[in-house]
Amino acid sequence: MAAGSLRRIWALVYRHTALYRRSWPRLLDFAYGPLMQLLIWGFTARFLAGHAGTMATISGLLIGGVLLWEAALASQLGFSVSFLEEIWSRNLGHLFVSPLRPWELIAALVVMSLLRALAGMLPALVLAVLLYAFDIFRLGPVVLLLFTFLAMMGWWVALGIVAFILRHGAGAEGLVWTVMFGLTPLSAVFYPVAALPAVLRPLALVLPSAHVFEGLRAALAGASPWREIIAAALLNLAWLGLMAVLFRWSFEAARREGALVALGE
């Protein structure tokens, strides 16, 4: 990567970290969602363990599921909210007339997504150990792959949302908070894909997240998760490619139709 590109990516990362340094409510917001979800599902797991099985199994399914899914949510929100910050501050007009290439903007948003996901997930991961004695990393290095593939899913979902906002304006920003929510049932976070109605299963199986959670359940059961992990990796690459094409098309359409001017002011 050329030094100029790295410098421009750093410029945007610096811009967002400077914003977060000055705004502690934003930092609090990162961790709030994952912590609340962990508390809800952690206590649910503890309650169910008392009635229906061992704590280890229930915790693995529910707490492991919620921690991984929150990583996908944090990744998607980190990417798309960073883009929205540029719209809210009416700064896009300056960015798009600078030498910043569109792919460099995306790279900066990916970096911000990672930083935001780390800031949001670390407290939840620590609290899971302290409150429920659940350490997801006991499953081994495969957990890092599961987190990585869910973060990647967050990126391509966010890229699709940003493409939609470029095409249809800031009025579409509500999608940032709803699209992943809509994908939750199909992602089979807390139950196997087989539990879905037959008509929904093909839809679930084109999502990397469904394979990641099948992989988590396989790992918890002591079986090999690799088939699911490879499927998640390949699906992520396909979706990333598709959304990159959609983003490029939307960006050029926005330039053609003058939408960048409206977004930038």
Binding site: R15, L19, R22, E85, S89, R90, E265
Partner: peptide, 9 residues
């Protein structure tokens, strides 16, 4: 008509 980030110095 095009602003700079208000919260940044």
């Amino acid at each position: 008509y095009v602003a700079l980030p208000a919260r940044l110095s």
